[in-house]
């Protein structure tokens, strides 16, 4: 029983990180139909920005480190869209996909050049003591940082949900996803809304990067593997859907953690990708996705 709870919490922690990345893939795809293949590397960069802040401003409280890293990464995300993607918005889909891959490789090598190829860890800034209540009542040994990572991630997702569903900016984001051509006629600057979307997606990825760098580790190429996983999570959930990205992320993390715990860590990726294939055969548009063809 206690190991199951422990494994579930491990899955929740990994799923939270996947979700924070997957949301950016899904939101950007939702509004401009671009699969931003550099997004995994923005996640990596966010982690490293967090590491640099922690290293150079050791006295800052954790929440300020996070806010600062999220803002800086948001700025990077907005700049990438402005410099690399905007001019290609009406170009062939393939051109901008290739550009995104190029941006990703650029970011990986930039971090490698500036910081080095070694694996790093963000020094623990969240309390790492055991959650006494859980130990006493359920006999499970869980550290506070894991619980906090899960809770803060869920809080960020809740904030995102409120922004998207309850604010005018969110209404505009949904409107761009629905019918971008009409949005400017409502007096809304389309580019501004697209920038906001990149900013939010990048900030969430940065939060994921910091959590990952604290719970596991950072290296310049981590964005490739984790980015793909988060992308898969977004696709399983139904790319373009915010709820779907979160569901897909926790589902994928659950499958991975259970496979590692009860089968073999070598099977982790095989089973995760196998799941992707099976789920997409059942739901070609993902769990929460809309069918591409509503009517024939």
């Amino acid at each position: 029983m206690d190991t199951i709870i422990q494994q579930l919490l491990n899955a929740a922690q990994l799923g939270a990180v996947y979700a924070l990345i997957a949301l950016g893939y899904s939101m950007v795809y939702g509004i401009i139909r671009l699969i931003n293949f550099a997004h995994g590397d923005i996640f990596m960069l966010g982690g490293f920005i967090g590491l640099i802040i922690v290293t150079h401003f050791g006295g800052l409280p954790f929440c300020l480190v996070m806010i600062l890293a999220m803002l800086l990464t948001a700025l990077v995300g907005v700049t990438i869209e402005r410099v690399a993607y905007r001019k290609l918005r009406n170009a062939q889909r393939m051109s901008v996909v290739i550009t995104a891959l190029g941006v990703g490789i650029f970011l990986e090598n930039l971090v490698r050049l500036l910081i080095g190829p070694e694996t790093r860890q963000i020094p623990a800034r969240l309390p790492t003591g055991s959650v006494v209540w859980l130990q006493q009542h359920l006999g499970v040994f869980v550290t506070w940082d894991k619980v906090l990572i899960i809770l803060i991630s869920l809080a960020l997702m809740a904030v995102l949900w409120i922004i998207v569903n309850k604010t005018l900016v969110g209404t505009a984001m949904r409107a761009v996803a629905d019918n971008a051509s009409v949005v400017p006629l409502m007096g809304v600057n389309l580019n501004l809304i697209i920038s906001v979307t990149f900013a939010i997606g990048s900030a969430l990825a940065a939060a994921g990067g910091i959590f990952y760098g604290q719970a596991y580790s950072l290296d310049p190429y981590m964005g490739i593997d984790l980015g793909w996983k988060a992308f898969i999570a977004a696709v399983i959930g139904g790319i373009g859907s915010i709820e779907g990205a979160v569901i897909g992320a926790f589902l994928l993390a659950g499958v991975e953690v259970i496979t590692v715990a009860y089968l073999s860590s070598n099977l982790k990726n095989g089973i995760a990708f196998g799941l992707l294939i099976i789920l997409l055969l059942i739901w070609p548009s993902g769990i929460m996705g809309k069918p591409l063809l509503k009517k024939v």
């Binding site: 005018l168 505009a172 949904r174 409107a175 629905d178 009409v182 007096g187 809304v188 809309k290």
Partner: peptide, 18 residues
């Protein structure tokens, strides 16, 4: 050309941006 997957109210709310 409406925002088909949004509510009637949200369609109007969008226009208030202007």
């Amino acid at each position: 050309r409406l925002f088909k997957d949004m509510t009637v109210l949200d369609n109007i709310a969008m226009a208030f941006h202007a």
